[in-house]
Every structure is written in C-alpha cells, then in structure tokens.
Amino acid sequence: MYRLLAALLGLLAFSMPLRAQEAGRLLEYERVSAAGLPDQRLSIWLPPGYDADDQRYPVLYMHDGHNLFDLKNSNFNKIWAADKAMLSAVKSGKVEPHIIVGIWAPGSDRYRQYLPRSAYDAASGTLRTRMDQTANGEVVSDLYLAWIIGPLKSWVDSSFRTRAGRDDTAIVGSSMGGLMSCYAFLEAPQVFGRAGCVSSHWPAIDPRVVEGEDRGVRDLWDAWFAARLGQPDGRRVWLDHGTATLDAYYAPYQQVIDARFAALGWQKGRDWESKVYQGAEHEENAWAARLPEIFGWLLAED
C-alpha cells in the first residue's frame, strides 16, 4: 500500500498539461517513481470530446512514449503519430476512441526494462551471456509489468474516465517494445485483452551475433508461447515485421511463432494477425504508416 501511494503521489506531483489540441489533448507527467525501476515518464492523450462529455473510454498503453506524439521529444525526429492513427481508426467506424498512455523508455535502461524476464530466465549459454552484456544490469521487465498493471493502471483508472476491464485494455509496442507487449499479454491475460507486437525484436540481441544459434532462439520463443499463450478466450494479438534493415532478420522467428498460434487453435484474422510489409524498415515512419491499420484491426469492436 505504501509503495502504491508513493507511486501515485509521484504521478500527481509532477503532472502538467503539455498542450491542448483540437484533435484531443496531450498531458505530460514527469519523473514518475516506480519501485525497483528507473524513474518513468508519461505522455497521455485524451481523445476529442473527453472534456465535453461524461462517457468512459477504453485504454491503450504504449511503450516508447517519447516517440508517439511530438517530434520535439523523439529520438530520431520521427514519431508514430499515434493520436492521428487513433483518429483515423475511429473515423472508420470500427474503433471507439481510446485514451493512450505513452510510457517513455528509460534511456540506456530500455533493453533491460523491455526484455521479457521469463524468456531471459529460460535462456542459456551464449544467448544468456549476450543478453547480460546488452542489459548491463538486472533485467527488470517483471517489475515494469508489475508497475503497469498495479500502481500505473490503478492511477489511470482512478484519474481518468476509463473502462478498466480486460476487453477494454490494450498494449502496443515495437522492437523491444514489441517483445514487452507480448510479455504483458502472456503474463497478465486478466489485464490485457489486446496486444500489438510490432517489428518485435525476436533475436533478442544483435541479430548478427546470434547467427548460428538462431535455431535455439526460435526454440526458446516457441516454448515460451507454448507454455503461456493458452486459448484466445476473446483476446486478440497483432504481429508484424518489415523486410528491410533490422526487420530483415525477423521472418524465421515470426514463422515459428505463427505456427505456434495456429497449433494452439488461434484463428488467424479473428484471434491473431501476422503481416509482412515488403520494403518496410525498422523505424518510426514505417510503423506510423501502418498504425491506422493496426489499430483498425486490433482495437475493433467485437
């Protein structure tokens, strides 16, 4: 209880409005304390009409929040334009407006915060050694997930007009954030009814050094999904990758994972989707280009 209260007070103490938009309102929350983690930061988008009505909204949590909305916050002067993608999906008539909670990546700690702890624990040999070298510290994705589904979600649901149930709660990320989104979906199925795993970095480390051991990495992910995925039960997952730059390495892993979904009885097009975008690179502009499609399928009303 004390940790929860401290986390909530941290959120409240550093909240401030960033700007008002005709197409929604963006809020920023700085230096958010989270037990066992580097300080976190949030950018939260409220859809148009939020301030003028009393309806409740589903919630979408997204990683790498600094790259979602505002170019001045982005790493590479590129953004997902998640607010515009949401507006496009809503305009289609298939998707309800969602509150978007963008969780910023903690700089150099990003890898150890996003690498799924249960997959890390299952790794061995050279792969585990490479993971340790890349993480340069304790892997804390289990603590990150506990914070999201505990203090953060509790604060979001109490501070905004949300619909807090599983079927109204989604999580989306790319690259290592794609791994983290799948991790959250598998480890907290009671919380997340939707997950978008975009250009997920299945090699887990530099794919150039994993070559020769890639069969072992594919087996690791296959066993990981086999042990945790379960039955759809109304849930939905989006998986994808491009074919250029870093995404060019992903197809062999994605094919194994796709086969596991099918083997467990998930129906493609209804329960899960897996797409390949020819020529698409591993970068924010490519993800922004397909995000309306992702939202349109993943968040569509049943």
Score class of each variant (00 low, 15 high):
E96H: 07
A204I: 09
A85Y: 03
A226C: 15
E284N: 05
W221Q: 15
G242W: 03
G65H: 00
Q231L: 03
S200R: 05
L291G: 02
Y249G: 14
Q254C: 14
A195W: 03
T169I: 10
Q21Y: 15
E22K: 14
S174M: 09
K91D: 15
G279P: 02
W80T: 06
Y249P: 13
F225E: 10
D258C: 12
L5C: 06
D233N: 14
W224M: 09
A286F: 03
L4D: 01
K78L: 15
L143D: 08
P116G: 13
V217E: 08
G10V: 00
A286D: 09
D109Q: 07
S124V: 15
R194S: 03
S74D: 10
W272C: 13
G49N: 07
A123S: 13
G24C: 02
I257L: 11
P116A: 12
D222Q: 15
Y250R: 09
Q254H: 13
R218K: 08
A119V: 08
V209F: 01
Y183T: 11
Y250H: 12
N73V: 15
Q255N: 15
R166S: 03
A122N: 13
G165I: 09
L37M: 10
G196Y: 02
E293M: 10
F160I: 00
L68R: 09
H282D: 05
L127V: 13
A184C: 05
F76N: 15
A13E: 10
A204K: 06
Q267M: 15
A123M: 09
P207T: 02
V209Q: 05
N77L: 15
S33C: 14
L246C: 12
A259D: 13
V101F: 06
H282N: 06
I44W: 00
P38V: 07
L60V: 06
S158E: 00
A89Q: 00
A280F: 04
V32D: 00
W202H: 04
V256D: 01
V191E: 04
R117K: 14
R163A: 10
P207R: 01
R110E: 01
A184L: 02
D121K: 12
E211I: 13
W266Q: 07
A280V: 07
F160L: 02
A300L: 06
I99M: 08
S274I: 11
A244P: 07
V210S: 10
A34P: 00
A105D: 05
Y253Q: 11
G242L: 06
M180A: 13
L46I: 02
A263I: 05
L5I: 03
T162V: 05
Y250E: 10
S200A: 04
Y57M: 08
R31A: 03
W287C: 09
Y2I: 02
R235D: 04
W104G: 01
M86E: 04
V156M: 01
L42Y: 04
R228Y: 04
A82Q: 03
E30M: 14
D258K: 14
L264W: 04
D54E: 14
R228P: 04
D233F: 11
R117P: 13
A280R: 04
Y277N: 11
L26I: 11
I149L: 02
I205C: 11
A135F: 07
R41L: 06
E28H: 13
W104R: 02
G10M: 00
L11F: 00
E96P: 06
P292N: 04
A204C: 10
E301R: 15
A280D: 05
N67C: 12
P189C: 03
G234T: 06
W202L: 06
W238I: 01
F261I: 10
V198Q: 07
F192L: 01
A262N: 10
